[in-house]
Design a protein around this nucleic acid. Structure first.
Lengths: 336, 336
DNA sequence: CTGAAAGCGCTTACAG
DNA sequence: CTGAAAGCGCTTACAG
């Protein structure tokens, strides 16, 4: 089966290849090509089952109609949900999405950016890792459209869309306090990224306002440790700090490790301990009791991020840097 | 920042662009280019931070060094694990992977194949949906390398790598029988794909051999129904067929629906009911009690599939169609 | 041993 | 209203 090119169409329709190209790119009217010719070309293209060669057109135009999506871990449900919505949104606009996971590894993130640059993606949506600020500066210098999601660098002037982490954490903590909980722990990781800092700050402020704050109630888990190590650390922490009656996890994978720790310790939820975690997860719904979460507005984040990226990708438009905060949602289930 | 091309290197190194191309493609020696020139060209390329334009080279060679991976649902852990291993394997060999989900929708699957064809991927790894046989025939006619995973079409001569579904199901059923269970249910979907048929057949044969087979112990869930509908169907089935003392689920999403059904019905696992499911899942390990599974040999499947695909992609090599069965592993946890 | 040139399949400025 | 031609950045058969 021979590849059909615009040359074949031109031959068959007895017009020049430029005419074919104009018609197939819907520029026929603009170029004052006659209705009859337009119709003819379209029919021939249809008849021969013409499929444009995207590689050739990319080489010529320098555009690939693709965007690179770099997330932390595509096998984490939060990110795979995000990716799916972003992909759908992009497809509506005729863009293809290449996605890859950093595993929060800075070197790998940098490599991925290089490789996507080399694949000539037209724009980037990134959940940056800690040391990625330079690489992102680099993209900006290259005038590549970039939107960050889930987190960002406070000093850097780049569009980003994130949840209102401070508010989410603050309200969840207040909710626990109103429920009569007094000794509320906060389990975070050691990454120090802005979204984790804000989640911690929301908790700290709510605790301080209620006069309940104690530094010893905060546990920081090594980010790069495996799940068993996290479970062990949580067990150790709760054995040392008896009397804790509630806990807020700053991400779903910590919450999941926590549930396993509590099972080992035979702690009963919510009698002994109220539990709330950031980010929803299938296992939180299935768990007995089901676990309350601060659900991220995934759809809103994805749609907005694609929108901001498109704004930057439209040639010549003077785009504005936008920094968007989306509200999360406290989903109360049986665990509080 | 200007894009560096081989022309720039040629200019700077004072050689022709062909020489540059040969050197950078490691064909310098073969073309009898002097050591000195090779070194010079490499140094200049390094100095100018040359990055080859993959689009240009693709247009010229017709190869993209990429493979298309079509799975049923990338947000299902079985497929996302599979995808990760395939991606890693492919990367080792210098290939990039584009992945997409069919959602078991035949039209969408066909579309995805078209779109990957248009993106000029060099080969395909596919978990086919029911009506995809024609599309796959089409790929073969185009001489596109294809490997199927997880399932295949019995009459079609295509390389594939799948788990030994019959054996997995047969042993799991036998295990339940040896444990003293007598009224063992089997929950399958309505898709009728070969892997599901074989899982059912393994169960049926084991039951028949033990003289325990009853057709009424098999439930078929509508594939395209949502989770709540599946849960309702399972509840209905178990309310009608009282006395069932064990159940084997033919895929993880059915097992997960089942766990929710049993929770609603206050069935106690494993006292009232032993449970085993195909495919592992995070929630199966976290569940109280933890759920026994027939674990798929994901790494082996992925590695083998990439290997078979590469065999086909090496130009001119007369590749052989291989049909590979990998053994699954029965992981016994608390649910039996 | 190395270079000039054709060509992959498009898009688009230019000419008429 | 439509066509001839240049050029995107490579690879490779051919010439010398």
């Amino acid at each position: 089966m021979k590849k059909i090119t615009i040359k074949d169409i031109a031959l068959e329709a007895k017009v020049s290849i430029s005419t074919v190209s104009f018609v197939l790119n819907d520029k026929g009217e603009k170029m004052n090509i006659s209705k009859a010719v337009i119709k003819k070309v379209q029919e021939v293209a249809e008849k021969l089952h013409y499929r444009p060669n995207m590689i050739a057109s990319s080489l010529r135009t320098g555009k690939t109609r693709s965007i690179g999506l770099i997330v932390e871990d595509i096998s984490n449900q939060f990110f795979s949900d995000l990716a799916r919505v972003i992909e759908d949104e992009a497809k509506k606009l005729g863009y293809r999405v290449f996605y890859c996971s950093t595993g929060n590894d800075d070197d790998r993130s940098d490599e991925l950016i290089q490789s996507l640059l080399q694949a000539n993606v037209d724009g980037f949506i990134i959940t940056p890792t800690e040391k990625l600020e330079k690489s992102i500066d680099h993209l900006i210098k290259l005038k590549k459209p970039v939107v960050l999601i889930d987190r960002y660098f406070p000093g850097q002037n780049v569009s980003h869309v994130v949840m209102d982490n401070y508010e989410g954490s603050y309200s969840a903590t207040q909710f626990l306090i109103k429920k009569g909980r007094r000794s509320i722990a906060f389990v975070n990781n050691t990454s120090g990224m802005i979204q984790m800092q804000l989640r911690e700050k929301g908790y700290v402020d709510a605790m301080k306002e209620a006069g309940l704050y104690q530094e010893s109630l905060i546990l920081h888990l090594e980010y790069h440790s495996n799940e068993d190590a996290k479970i062990a650390a949580i067990v150790h922490f709760f054995e040392k700090n008896t009397g804790i009656d509630a806990v807020l996890f700053s991400a779903n994978y910590m919450g999941l490790a926590g549930l396993q720790a509590f099972r080992k310790m035979d702690l009963e939820i919510p009698k002994d301990l109220s539990v709330i975690s950031f980010d929803d997860h299938y296992s939180f719904r299935l768990h007995t009791p089901s676990i309350s979460v601060i659900e991220q507005p995934i759809d809103a984040i994805a749609v907005k991020a694609v929108g901001l990226l498109m704004d930057q990708m439209i040639d010549g438009r003077d785009f504005v840097i936008e920094k968007v905060l989306q509200k999360g949602k406290l989903l109360i289930r049986e665990s509080v």
